[in-house]
Amino acid sequence: MPLNPDSPLAKLMATLPRAGKVEWIGLRPARDEVMVATEVVDAETGAGLVGDRYKGGSGKRGITLIQAEHLPVIAALAQRPDLAPSLLRRNVVVSGIPLIALKGRRFRIGDAVFEGTEDCDPCSRMEDALGAGGYNAMRGHGGLCARIVEGGTFRLGDAVEAL
């Protein structure tokens, strides 16, 4: 049942004190290959990120995002001293805005517009990437999947703004 947009809870959920920021961008060139970090990327409407192996796949998963503030938590739960974003296989690391607040909403990064579609749950590959318990270390911290509503270019340092 959808939330009444005029309800006090809906108003609280829509209140974001500031924009976020793109901290890292990565592309998966092919299955089981190391992610490639980049400073700029093109997003194509309904498709995905140019250069990413998932481009052209499911529109609701055109891009995956993870919260920078969750990386130290995942590292601690996986008993690792640090954590390279590429190990988590997400396209974009974002800081300063709660990604969960963008689920079901549209948001802009650079010239592109996205819509948060679903949680980005971890996959079994996290056991190999993070060690035993890696899957569970990421549960609840896997980030957000989004579809690309309007294609465009975005880059490191760009704002992540709810629309």
Rank of each mutant, 00 (worst) to 15 (best):
I25G: 05
R89I: 00
A146Q: 02
A101D: 14
P81F: 08
R80F: 08
V40K: 15
L65F: 15
V22W: 09
I63N: 07
D42A: 13
V113N: 03
P122Y: 11
G116M: 03
E118F: 02
L77Q: 09
R155I: 00
G133K: 04
H70S: 13
E23F: 02
V50A: 06
G56Y: 02
G134M: 11
A76Q: 14
A30W: 05
A47H: 06
N136F: 13
R53S: 05
A47K: 15
C145R: 15
A76I: 00
D121Y: 03
R108M: 04
C145T: 10
V92M: 06
H141N: 10
K103Q: 13
L49I: 08
R31C: 00
R31G: 04
G134R: 11
R108D: 04
V160N: 10
L9K: 05
E150Q: 14
N91W: 07
V34H: 11
A10D: 11
R106A: 08
P2N: 07
G51I: 07
I66R: 11
G116A: 07
Q67E: 15
I97M: 09
L163P: 15
C145W: 10
D32N: 14
V36K: 15
P2V: 02
F154H: 09
D158R: 11
T45I: 01
L88K: 03
A132D: 12
N4S: 14
I100V: 09
E150D: 13
G140H: 08
M126Y: 02
D6I: 01
G20P: 09
N136W: 12
E127P: 00
P98G: 06
V22Y: 09
I100C: 00
S58L: 11
V92K: 03
G48E: 04
R80Q: 14
L9H: 06
L130Y: 03
I97F: 09
A19K: 14
C123Y: 09
D6T: 10
A19G: 10
R53P: 00
P29I: 03
L130S: 02
A75D: 05
G48I: 03
P81D: 14
L102C: 02
S95T: 09
G26R: 10
I25D: 08
G26H: 10
R28A: 13
R18G: 13
L16V: 15
P8E: 15
R61L: 03
G157V: 05
S7I: 03
D121I: 06
L49H: 08
C123T: 12
T153L: 02
R106Q: 15
G96H: 10
M13G: 02
V40T: 15
L130C: 03
Y54I: 00
L163H: 09
C120L: 04
I63K: 04
E69V: 06
L83V: 00
A47S: 13
V50N: 01
S124C: 00
L12E: 14
N91T: 11
G104L: 01
Y54F: 14
V73P: 00
R125S: 12
F114R: 08
S86G: 13
L87A: 13
I100W: 06
R108H: 08
